[in-house]
Design a protein around this nucleic acid. Sequence first.
DNA 1: TATCTTGTTGGAAAAATTACAAGAAGATTT
DNA 2: AAATCTTCTTGTAATTTTTCCAACAAGATA
Lengths: 144, 144
Amino acid sequence: MTSLKKQAYNKLIDCGIKPSSQRTAILEYLLSHHTHPTVEEVYKSVLNEIPTLSITTVYNTLRLFSEKQAATMLTIDDHRICYDGVTTPHAHFYCKQCGRVIDVPYEGLSDIQTDNVMGNQVTEVHLCFKGLCQKCQSQSESQS
Amino acid sequence: MTSLKKQAYNKLIDCGIKPSSQRTAILEYLLSHHTHPTVEEVYKSVLNEIPTLSITTVYNTLRLFSEKQAATMLTIDDHRICYDGVTTPHAHFYCKQCGRVIDVPYEGLSDIQTDNVMGNQVTEVHLCFKGLCQKCQSQSESQS
DNA sequence: TATCTTGTTGGAAAAATTACAAGAAGATTT
DNA sequence: AAATCTTCTTGTAATTTTTCCAACAAGATA
């Protein structure tokens, strides 16, 4: 078992999730690709390792991960959900042009983090910046 | 013309959007209902006023509003987009149980607000807390 | 009025997500 | 080890959400 697979396996145990081969492979993928993949992307990639994998399993598994805090469901893009295997606090930047989601280290997030907002119990804090990424900026400059 | 319709009309002009009757009615609805409605909800409601309204128009219009900053597109719920006509900075709380989106005044947001994150040009800042709302908390208590 | 541009409509298509029932795998009991 | 029970996975079909597109309507310009 590779160290990455072991890492995924252990995280599943820690989160109280039974580590089936499908679940371990999916988490392993998330832990090694910090690209905020969509369900479809996870499915297609893990299919290489498990050719019998079903898209329903991917949906079920990722929802389970989100519930058990093994991964975070990001609802940033306006037409698809994506997932983040990094569960330590950080923010995101979303490029409205190319659709990429980029990690943003954000120290201030621990100050924002609170258990209670107006009497409502908080379990997750999502901070997302939206705009035009560096790459897309320079591309639209060179065109004009 | 009611004061609310006038208000919607003026906001459209300010944002550089031609104020057709459909657009005005849709913005009027957003300005008078701070419930973060989905496209479907906007459609059904405005249909009372404009019986020939098409769902495509609602999609087109709300996307336009979002582009021209007349409203904000919220991608909080995992299976539907919703819209917010209040464009002054504030945060949101999303209840994972009942799905409601509640406004949260957040003074700190102006501190977070920045034009540039890691070289990327920022035009919107989204801060969203997720968890269990007060109402759902007390309901699950009384059941146990 | 004629022409041009912009906005709206409806229906059909595409894409994303969920439901569900059957089968497989793993754990537990006898 | 066989029988039983539970949990997980699969595939298909259905549902829901969103977009596409072509025709029509309305408003602006000349």
